[in-house]
Each structure stands twice: as structure tokens, then as C-alpha cells.
């Protein structure tokens, strides 16, 4: 196994780069990161549309959400890879295909997370904001979303983790991400499939594990701030003095 890693680690990490296209683990990370980065604002916008008082915004987005949610990601990849070129007129490359598929898929799932987060904030918060004269948009931005985003964190991480793993579907259309490279290595070596796929699994696990730990750390940090623990109150060291007079 040591031999295997020594021989192939550069190939596994970056594919044929710089002689050929970038690939391997770096491509996997790049794809996942780009997909999440692009899906975030889309998810937020779709989520807000889902709870919008304007039916013209709410309805089409609701349809889109139900549609995308009801199709396997693999099929979405196929649709984009095989159908999109007939519309745009030129071939969609593998990376763009996977990126678009992941962004659409994640955008819709994030939208549902955003919606649930918004609806999880007590109704009185929205009423209080509106009663002060804040518009719907300002109430969302200043009062509801800051609270909703905190409660959404665990679900967001869940979605991020599943996106990292979903990049492996790129294998199907020949995108040279980590899974594809691993299977290339496997067909060159032939005799050590267990070792090859063990390394691949470990790689995915490590990426997801680090992300989960980071989120856990964020959550802990957040919880410390939310708890009514007067001693930690920023800027008001005397806040613990119970004064109900």
C-alpha cells in the first residue's frame, strides 16, 4: 500500500496536471467548494421566495423545488450533459455539467433549509419587526435571517457534506475527479483494489470529517453567545445582578 501511495499520490491529488487537465482530489475540492459558494446565494434567494407574501414569486419557486427534489442527482447530470447542448448549441464540458447540476440541486435543497429556518423563528419576532415599521424585506434581513441562519447551521453542514460526496458522480460522465482517478489507478495496478478504494474512502471521510468538526466548533461558539450566561455578557460585566425593581 505504501508503494501504491508513493507511486500514485501526485496523480491522485492533481490528475495529469500540468501536462493534462486538472483532476484528482484538488478537482473534487474545487468542484464542491465552487458548487456550495454558488448555491448559497441561490438557495437564500429561493428560500426567501418560498416564504414570500408575493404569490408570483412563491408559486414558481415551489414548483421548481418539488421538481428538482423529485429527480435523482444522477438524472440531473444526464439532462445537463446530454440535453443542454441541444439548447445552447455546443457541448457542455464535464466540469461545467457537474457544477451546474450541483448548484441547481444544492440551491433547491438549501432553499428548503432556509425556508425551515425562517419558519422556525417565532412568529412574534416577525410581528414585532413589522409593528416597528420595518418592511418585509428589512424584517427578514435584520431580524429573521440572523436568527434563522443560526438554527440552520447543522442542516447546512449536512448539505455541504453530501455535496462533497456527490461530486463523485462526475465519474459517470468522465470528469477526472478523485473517484475517476482512483478507478484509473485501480485499472493500472489491477491487484490492489481494496487499497485503492480504501485510500479514496479515507480521502472523502477526512474532507467531510474536517467540515463537520468545523461546524461543530461554530455551533459551540454560537451557543455560548446565545445562552443567558450573564458573566460572559459582552460589555456589561454587571449584568448578572438580578435587579427586578
Amino acid at each position: 500500500m505504501i508503494d501504491l501511495i508513493q507511486t500514485y499520490w501526485v496523480y491522485f491529488l492533481i490528475g495529469q496536471y500540468p501536462q493534462g487537465p486538472l483532476g484528482g482530489v484538488v478537482l473534487t475540492v474545487l468542484l464542491a467548494a465552487l458548487a456550495l459558494l454558488l448555491a448559497m446565494p441561490i438557495g437564500l434567494a429561493l428560500g426567501l421566495a418560498r416564504v414570500s407574501p408575493v404569490a408570483a414569486l412563491r408559486r414558481p419557486v415551489t414548483v421548481l423545488v418539488y421538481l428538482v427534489r423529485g429527480i435523482p442527482l444522477l438524472l440531473m447530470v444526464f439532462w445537463i450533459y446530454f440535453y443542454l447542448p441541444t439548447v445552447t448549441g455546443h457541448k457542455t464540458d464535464q466540469f461545467t455539467t457537474m457544477l451546474v447540476a450541483l448548484v441547481v440541486f444544492d440551491g433547491v435543497y438549501l432553499a428548503e433549509i432556509v425556508r425551515a429556518g425562517i419558519q422556525g423563528v417565532p412568529k412574534g419576532q416577525y410581528e414585532a419587526a413589522r409593528a416597528l415599521g420595518l418592511s418585509h424585506a428589512r424584517a427578514m434581513r435584520r431580524v429573521i435571517l440572523p436568527q434563522a441562519l443560526r438554527s440552520m447551521l447543522p442542516s447546512l453542514v449536512n448539505q455541504f457534506v453530501s455535496t462533497i460526496k456527490a461530486t463523485s458522480l462526475g465519474y459517470i460522465i468522465g470528469l477526472t475527479e478523485a473517484s475517476f482517478i482512483a478507478s484509473q489507478i485501480n485499472s493500472q495496478v489491477l491487484v490492489h483494489p481494496t487499497a485503492v478504494y480504501l485510500v479514496l474512502s479515507l480521502m472523502y471521510f477526512l474532507l467531510c470529517f474536517c467540515l463537520s468538526r468545523f461546524a461543530f466548533w461554530l455551533e459551540r461558539r454560537q451557543a455560548r453567545r446565545d445562552l443567558p450566561r450573564p458573566a460572559r455578557s459582552p460589555g456589561s460585566p454587571t449584568a448578572s445582578a438580578a435587579s427586578s425593581a
Binding site: 419576532q125 419587526a129 416597528l132 435584520r142
Partner: peptide, 30 residues
């Protein structure tokens, strides 16, 4: 609504803002 003050049974203070920020939100935003 900015000309009518409303106080709720459940207070409905904004928990992510300090006491002072609760009181400056509407004057600044609205």
C-alpha cells in the same frame, strides 16, 4: 406602524441584538 408603538404580551425582543440595538433598529432602519 412607526407612528404607533406596540407592546406584546411576550415582549418579542430581538434576541440576537443587544438591549440598545433593539431600541435603535427602527430609528436607523425606518
Amino acid at each position: 406602524r412607526s407612528r404607533i408603538g406596540f407592546v406584546f404580551q411576550q415582549f418579542n425582543l430581538f434576541p440576537h441584538l443587544t438591549v440598545l440595538q433593539n431600541c435603535t433598529l427602527a430609528p436607523i432602519e425606518v
